[in-house]
Computed example of a mutant assay.
Amino acid sequence: MTSAVSSRRASFGTVLLLALLLVLVGGAVAIWALSRFPEAARLVGFAQPVAAQPADQPLAVATLPAPGSPAVPAIEPTPQAEARVATLEARLARVETATARAEGSAGRADALLVAFAARRAIDRGVALGYLEPLLSERFGPSHARAVATIVTASRRPVRLDQLIADFDTLEPRLKAAPESASLWENVRREMGSLVSIRRADQPSQRPVATYERASARLSSGQVDQALAEAMRLPGISGAPQWVANARAYIAAHRALDEIEGAALLAR
């Protein structure tokens, strides 16, 4: 009986010792797990609560630099950097100058092309056509009168060969005295043609010589000088249409000279 009771006590003590060991081992495992996983510890309630910031304490605000103040400290330019900047500026200036020259050359070429085409049309006695708006656009603002003269001449063309042919046709009339001249004027003219006194360096004022000089000037294209000689002929008053055509031709070519000069100076 006594041996049975002692055996029971021994087995109970063993069980109690095993249970104590299991509790110690489980506690150690739980402490290790909570130290390794803080989220699990906070979930179970073993983690330390974060101290709340007092309500009356102002929040810390990051301060930004003022707009005018540099974000980084200023860097002193070195002589090498200044020299490189100066070189780049010089290159940029040369490029701008070359570009301006190219644009000026292109504009000058366009203006000369329009002016030469207009002269060719006037010399041929044809209408300007598409050149008329180009002339007005290119030269109208600064040479309006010259452009208007050229446009008018193109609508009523007068060619050099036409002037020469008409002058040859009018030869007898130009050399003769006008019908409205009085008898005394005719006698004076005839007497003057018989005897002429002049200086050696002055041209002859006889109608035949004057007509020949005018015809030579006209054949060489010097219409203004030919007109000046023709105005000395006795019968020039009988050729008003030829005089008007010659003056229109001279005005048109002077206007062409003006716009060609402007085209050479165009930018």
Rank of each mutant, 00 (worst) to 15 (best):
V95G: 11
D110S: 15
A60Y: 15
G27K: 05
V50R: 07
A100H: 02
G13P: 08
A118Y: 03
R120N: 13
T78M: 05
E137V: 00
A60D: 12
A10R: 09
E82N: 08
L43N: 12
L128N: 00
P73L: 09
E103W: 08
E39N: 13
V126P: 03
Q48W: 14
P141I: 05
L92R: 15
L24M: 09
L131Y: 01
A93E: 08
L20D: 04
E103V: 07
A121H: 08
E76I: 01
R145D: 15
E137K: 03
R120S: 15
D56T: 06
Y130N: 09
G125T: 06
V114F: 12
R138D: 15
F139I: 02
A102N: 11
V15E: 04
A60G: 14
R101Q: 11
L24V: 07
A100L: 06
V5T: 12
L22Y: 14
G107S: 10
T99K: 00
A102S: 08
D123A: 13
E132R: 07
W32M: 14
A10W: 09
A86P: 00
L18Y: 07
P79S: 05
P65T: 15
A111D: 00
I31S: 11
P77C: 05
S136I: 01
S6R: 15
S11G: 04
A98H: 03
G68V: 09
I31C: 08
L21W: 07
G13K: 13
A41D: 04
A100K: 05
G125K: 02
A81P: 10
R8E: 10
R108E: 06
A117T: 03
V95H: 09
R119M: 11
G125A: 05
P73F: 06
V95M: 09
I122W: 02
L34A: 14
R9S: 03
R94E: 02
A66Q: 14
P77A: 07
R101K: 14
E132D: 05
T14D: 00
L18C: 08
A86N: 00
P58F: 01
G129Y: 04
G125S: 02
F12Y: 14
R120E: 10
W32C: 13
T87P: 02
L34V: 14
A115V: 01
R8K: 15
